[in-house]
Nucleic acid binder design. Sequence first.
DNA 1: AGGGTTATTGCAACAAGTTGCACTCATTCA
DNA 2: TGAATGAGTGCAACTTGTTGCAATAACCCT
Lengths: 138, 138
Amino acid sequence: MSCDRALREKGYRLTPQRMLVIEALHNANGHISAEEIYEQLHARYSYSNISTVYRTLELMKKLNLVTETDFSEGRVRYHVAEKGRHHHLVCRTCGRIIDLDESIINPLKDTLLQDYDFEADLRHLAISGECHDCYKEG
Amino acid sequence: MSCDRALREKGYRLTPQRMLVIEALHNANGHISAEEIYEQLHARYSYSNISTVYRTLELMKKLNLVTETDFSEGRVRYHVAEKGRHHHLVCRTCGRIIDLDESIINPLKDTLLQDYDFEADLRHLAISGECHDCYKEG
DNA sequence: AGGGTTATTGCAACAAGTTGCACTCATTCA
DNA sequence: TGAATGAGTGCAACTTGTTGCAATAACCCT
């Protein structure tokens, strides 16, 4: 759906650069890096700069339009917020990734809200650890 | 207690650089950054390099001697693992930090282990969100 | 449609962290 | 004790991401 409109409605300008960043995010099926977004932007609009990509992503994070997730691969990845509310378990040994429904975090969120009056932002986590097979061997 | 001994026992060498990194970590009350560790190291041992600090911290993380925590301040901070098992709630609006006992995460850890056979590494988290006062205003 | 306002951009410099390589030196073993 | 081994280091180059600033251009208003 329309990230474009969300930006406009909040009073932000809809530049060609921003439109292309949004398009790249929507076309990516799954998680895309800033560098990959920039490649697509630059291919169609050569007077552009990766700092614009970072600034656009920063803005979209602030507006809850994208989530940022660190899979411990040296760069973070982005994902349209509404396209899938989920988390990941990342095995530090074999790299295997297990997907998780968002609801698994709800009890923790509820506890933090009730006991600490804290509204935790826990969308799209990548939780590091060890999967069953690797744990057995280690 | 003796990080020194832990390194030796695992067959790693105890160099002056490593000893000074360990000392800085132990003397710091609270969370210390790589840069701060390097300042202390360099003051006493001028032929040293910050990459050694990073490599030592990496090794100590692997051996569960230190934990690394990202307070969203542009650099991560380190902490001797045994000196306090806890987490932090960081308010993204006012920056306030609320400390949390380690046990708060246990139900989630248990769920991940039972339902997904996944041994989650959830030590020393900094959970971002909004505290009561800021949430009321937003 | 055209002009003014100011958000947004490109650029270049910067900061944190990582990596490959050649050299050093702690440890092992004869 | 002295040589061989390879873990550990310093250095320099690199990667990802951030920031200040001057120039640009999207949007609003007439």
